[in-house]
Amino acid sequence: MEKMLRDKRVIAILIAPSLIAFVFAVLAPILLSFVYSFTNSSGIGRFTFVGFENYSALAKDKAFWNALLNSALLAAGFILIQHPIAIFAAWLLDRIGGRAETFFKSAYFVPNIISSAVIATLWKYVYNTNFGLFNVIARFFGGEGVNWLGTGRAIWSVLIVLVWHGFGWGMLIYYTGVKNIDPVLYEAAAIDGCDDKKMFFAITLPLMRPVIQVNVTLALISALKQMETVYLLTKGGPGNETQFVATYLYKQAFQSGNYGYGNTISVVFVIICLLTTLFLNRLFRREG
């Protein structure tokens, strides 16, 4: 048996396809990006190596810093707006029980199951200046129609869509956390005369701590990695106002033909994501 578990040939057959997939689809592209990040390639034709020129240009690129700022705003939207409501909703779901629990839980998750392509196109209409839902509501209250995706306002409109779209996912994770709390604790607290508010803050929240940490980590990472919905909704515009890192690198490479520079952004993007993940894991591991 020992011999069987050490069979090199079998090990190779089992692990090789996965490693090949990783090398071919993840590692090789990133290494290629790294090489091209030092060039002025435009995708076609000749190019030359330009040293760290792209990197120093990136450090001074306002659109890039704005993209990071947008990620930070989105992370704040997730953590300060979406998550508190999601925890509250998860807690209420647990209390209501029965068929209502199942129904509402599904209702919250439905937008998540729908593709970004539908969501982005739908919200373009919700924000439509003439007959969009938002302006119909605004006019109902006597306000005026507004260009929701126009300068100065667009980023907030984009954030609303993203916070709305991801709500069900975050809620579902909190819901599992709430469900894992032993009901005996609530019963004991009730006998001791605790009211609802006290139970929520003294039992539910503290016991949810690990779930909150996981969910916050996921939210920060997904705020950084954001792309599809934004790309389809605004393409990063007007100007570069609603650009995120991924939409910006895409624009540089495929619309402006700056392959070298696009690859530089890709490399920095990978580094930022790796560092953020490692930092958050370490932070929460030390605390826990």
């Binding site: 990783f22 990133i30 091209y36 990695k225 690198l249």
Partner: peptide, 21 residues
């Protein structure tokens, strides 16, 4: 660990190089 590293890599960082490959 090498394969799990893939979870941390942003997919969209590979759009340009994979297109080229």
């Amino acid at each position: 660990n090498i394969i799990l590293l893939g979870m941390m890599i942003p997919i969209h960082a590979t759009l340009i190089p994979n297109y080229m490959i």
